[in-house]
Nucleic acid binder design. Structure first.
Length: 451
DNA sequence: TCTGGGGTCCTAGGACCC
DNA sequence: TCTGGGGTCCTAGGACCC
């Protein structure tokens, strides 16, 4: 029985695990890319197949993706790269700086392929999509799923896995099985009560979607070690310990959908922030960085046809350097008129930065956050607004279109500067195979050097 | 020396009003 | 003067996700 009705869920607070036989009218799928960033690096460099690969975060900080081989070596997710130096060298692990242009483009290819075969999908992240499988009663979901997985792999070179179940959370569970056991051929379906029970019993509580580190610890303290233990607890108990959020996860694990398919909506906040490649002590280079972050926020706003009303700037020192003086501050500014104009945002952001910048610290990171985001129209004017908004709108449109055709940052505001002292460290960047022919040709030329 | 970046949602508590 | 409760709005912080 599927109860796809939020009102019912709200009212019946004593709903306990159902034990009746189910008939699923509607199933959710979760398809995601295996070791996505590592797989992307591999697509254009087949010599890496079978080799351990790790991809590092911005500034080559810590590990954010690992190939299966790297996982096998015991390289943990999130580990700082410097701690892994020996392990990397002794095992000849291939290390890459993150190349988001490449990953973004590969993501498009994967998503487009899925969209060609599934009518209703929701892109959930760069490497994941939920599918809504409606009207599949007479179709063998297992072979349908296997076929989809195979097609995506063939068309894009990226290996993917699919989990199918009556709720999104259960689809996530199913997906883990598809990944873990090769014999599933990339697709696992949870469509009977027996499979659900077995899957939940084999799933650690911390691996459940929606249960993070903190709750995982809390639950284990109460002897809840598996997803099944959790699903068997009374609903009231879960509500008390974890609030409505935990209650929804509980319902979903028990087969009642609480998370519907979502359509993409405009962001409610937009943030651009970076750690600097080197520590900065002067206002000038930090200003340049902040100007760039503000410009990037404005560009993101224009892309989603929104204006921002509030702008926050923050800076801080390195919290890990406990032997050095620490400083963290932020400044919140209300914009007189909602805007997505780069020049205006830069101006306001720099004013904010000036108000919080203090001499005598080694700054590590800064960022700009835009909040209270509203749709582009209707615009509420300010009586005392003297800015020629039409003119600046036109300038922004021209700038975006030039940058769209000739490449990022070909045209920018003077304050964004050219020094780039704040720039990221990414020493192990792969070429942008999919978007930059020049990079690819250069690599080829090098490859041909025999000695 | 070296530890990412960008989001969302929920809750508790305070201020304020009637 | 004192006492009371309910409602709303805002904010900071906590938890989670990828």
């Amino acid at each position: 029985m599927i109860i796809n009705n939020i009102d019912y869920i709200e009212k019946d607070t004593n709903f306990d695990p159902p034990s009746d036989v189910r008939c699923f009218l509607l199933m959710y799928g979760l398809i995601d890319c295996n070791n996505f960033y590592a797989s992307c690096e591999r697509v254009f460099n087949p010599s890496l197949i079978g080799k351990p690969i790790v991809v590092l975060s911005n500034n080559d900080g810590c590990v954010i993706a690992r190939s299966a081989e790297a996982k096998k070596l015991g390289i943990p997710m999130g580990e700082p790269a410097y701690k892994l130096k020996d392990l990397i060298e002794s095992n000849q692990v291939y290390v890459f700086s993150s190349n988001y242009v490449l990953y973004g483009d590969m993501s498009h290819r994967v998503m487009n392929t899925i969209a060609e075969h599934v009518p209703n999908m929701e892109i959930y992240s760069i490497d994941e999509a939920f599918l809504l499988l409606e009207g599949f009663e007479n179709i063998d979901l297992k072979s349908y799923g296997e076929k989809l997985v195979k097609t995506v792999g063939k068309n894009t070179g990226i290996p993917v896995s699919l989990g199918v179940a009556p709720t999104k959370t259960l689809a996530k569970v199913a997906n883990k099985f598809a990944k873990k056991y090769k014999a599933y051929n990339g697709a696992t379906i949870i469509d009977t009560e027996e499979k659900r029970e077995k899957a939940l019993k084999l799933t650690e509580i911390g691996d459940v979607w929606g249960i993070g580190r903190k709750y995982s610890k809390k639950l284990q303290y109460h002897s809840v070690n598996t997803a099944w233990d959790f699903a068997q607890r009374p609903k009231k108990w879960v509500r008390q310990l974890m609030g409505v959020v935990g209650e929804r996860t509980w319902m979903e694990l028990n087969g009642t959908p609480c998370f519907e398919m979502e359509t993409p909506s405009a962001k409610k906040s937009i943030c651009t922030s970076r750690s600097f490649g080197e520590r900065l002590t002067e206002l000038a280079p930090i200003s340049e960085a902040v100007a760039n972050f503000a410009a990037s926020c404005a560009e993101k706003l224009r892309k989603q046809h929104s204006y921002g009303c509030v702008l926050t700037v923050f800076i801080h020192t390195n919290p890990h350097a406990t032997n050095q003086p620490q400083y963290y501050n932020h400044s919140v500014m209300q914009l007189s008129v909602p805007t997505n104009d780069s020049t205006e945002m830069i101006y306001v952001a720099l004013r904010g930065l000036k108000s919080i910048f203090k001499e005598g610290y080694r700054y590590k990171k800064a960022g700009v956050i835009v909040s209270e985001i509203v749709p582009e129209r209707p615009l509420q004017g300010d009586l005392f607004d003297t800015r020629d908004r039409d003119k600046f709108n036109k300038i922004m449109t021209v700038m975006d279109s030039l940058n769209g055709s000739y490449g990022k940052q070909k045209v920018k505001i003077a304050a964004q500067g050219f020094d780039r002292k704040w720039k990221l460290k990414n020493e192990k960047l792969s070429p942008c195979f999919t978007t930059n022919l020049k990079d690819v040709l250069e690599i080829k030329a090098e490859d041909e050097l025999p000695l």
